[in-house]
Write a protein that binds this DNA or RNA. Structure first.
Lengths: 154, 154
DNA sequence: CCCACTTTTTTACACTTTGTTGATAACTTT
DNA sequence: AAAGTTATCAACAAAGTGTAAAAAAGTGGG
């Protein structure tokens, strides 16, 4: 499974195409290394890019944790799949991102692609920078999440 | 696992490359001894360099103790991965540090690489020197941290 | 203690890969 | 068929990578 790391500034051309940075490309370990799924993030004003294999893992997680006969779950599932798109790398190693999605998260010309374990987030550059937490906020958050219980390292 | 000691003055060339000091290289004990991850430090104006193995240990801990569908956890993961990059030693034993990161911590030509257990800090030389605590401040800090309770040695 | 030798560091240059842009061709949709 | 969208290609610019040689620093033997 791919684990991505590193954030890269990239540019979107007027057709909505982004060159997928070569260092990220090298980190893709997937059966079909040029198929991806993009999607609006659930919580933040950004897009999320999954290699196809990782996406399938995510949908499996959803399947196993929901019951389509439960009305609320069904609602959730519909929303979860709304605004997803399959994208492929073209012959130049670029991804064509649907205009619709770009608009949803306010992406213009400058973006940041940020590797985060199994997925890659795509942000409008300004938003990525202003979304940054102060170091003390981060410290508090870290302590709340990792600081309480004994850590599992496996 | 590598434990680094010693601080070394190094120079960055105009392309952002740093010769990894030979004495530090000898201290690397890792599966892939020429792969590293650099990252902006959380608290200080410096970069931190982890041997890949050490980094993977860190991310494994994070992966197993967080759930990316939890909003706060996801926020934490994003901050954790912000400003990271994978770097490798080239054929001359140099590391190419991303310009973006060098700018973030005000590194020009002269830097200090300082071993600190599992990681190596990279400072702009001037900042490293001015960041030094006065000896009495340091003494107070030492006493507060180590001086109260009986010490554990394992 | 000095010299010769090895290793490490610095510098410069050439070359390859990656990134950017624009233009054109093929395809869909209306 | 026209308009819009998507794919393919080519050319240039920028960044990254590798090689080599010169300079500096460290090491050991006489």
């Amino acid at each position: 499974m791919s684990t991505f790391i590193g954030d890269y500034e990239c540019k979107v051309d007027e057709k909505g195409r982004v060159l997928f940075p070569s260092s990220l490309r090298k980190q893709v370990k997937s059966e079909s290394p040029n198929k991806f799924v993009v999607k609006k993030d659930i919580y933040e004003e950004c897009l999320v890019l999954y290699p196809m294999e990782e996406w399938e893992l995510q949908t499996a997680i959803i399947r196993h944790n929901t019951n389509p006969y439960n009305k609320e779950h069904n609602l959730f599932i519909r929303e979860f799949f709304r605004g997803t798109a399959e994208v492929t790398l073209d012959s130049n190693g670029r991804l064509l991102l649907p205009k619709r999605l770009l608009e949803m998260v306010g992406i213009g010309r400058d973006i940041v692609m940020a590797g985060m374990n199994g997925k890659i987030e795509i942000w409008a550059k300004e938003k990525y920078e202003t979304a940054q937490l102060g170091s003390s906020d981060f410290a508090n958050l870290a302590e709340r999440i990792l600081g309480s219980t004994p850590l599992k390292d496996e």
